[in-house]
Amino acid sequence: MARMKFLCDAERCIHCSGCVTACKNEHEVPWGINRRRVVTLNDGKPGQRSLSVACMHCSDAPCMAVCPVDCFYQTNDGIVLHNKDLCIGCGYCFYACPFGAPQYPSTGNFGGRGKMDKCTFCAGGPEVDHSKAELEKYGRNRIAEGKLPLCAEMCATKALLAGDGDMVSTIYRERVMARGFGSGAAGWGQAYGKKG
């Protein structure tokens, strides 16, 4: 079984933000927190491309390496998750993350940050699957329900692929072959190393 991966096909993404609101809808992510967002490069000029970005669930995750309280863990399927009971909201992981994934609600006094929140690959957290605690802290656990991340499942153009990394590459490769061009699997080298 290959690990879980994300891939956003920039030739298809139309910056409709369906993935963003799907995520908010699924997990009731509060205002100000964006587990996923869409960025557009060369906005308004020829060559304009959009990409949907969230935590990539890296093979060798920089956030895990820097967390001072070791609140991160990686599941057998390669999903990088964290424990909000341990998180102290220090923000190191944000600075380490190449994708700017970690997000913090500003709830503390003195403008302090609350617990880090990020994309869970729709796999919840360490609490018992489907428990109330898991829902409230991490959102819905689709993976345990046998469903893939909602952002990818609802993507308007099927630009966003998520799931078994090998299958993701196969689907993408076929697409590139059919159309004869592709702009590369953005972020894959960074997230999953050379073998991508």
Binding site: T75, L81, N83, D129, A144, M167
Partner: peptide
């Protein structure tokens, strides 16, 4: 990591996901 351990996916779930 020393926090609570997360559940592990069954092979059946993995197949469903695929």
């Amino acid at each position: 990591y020393t926090g609570t351990a997360d559940g592990v996916l069954s092979d059946a779930t993995r197949l469903t996901l695929r």
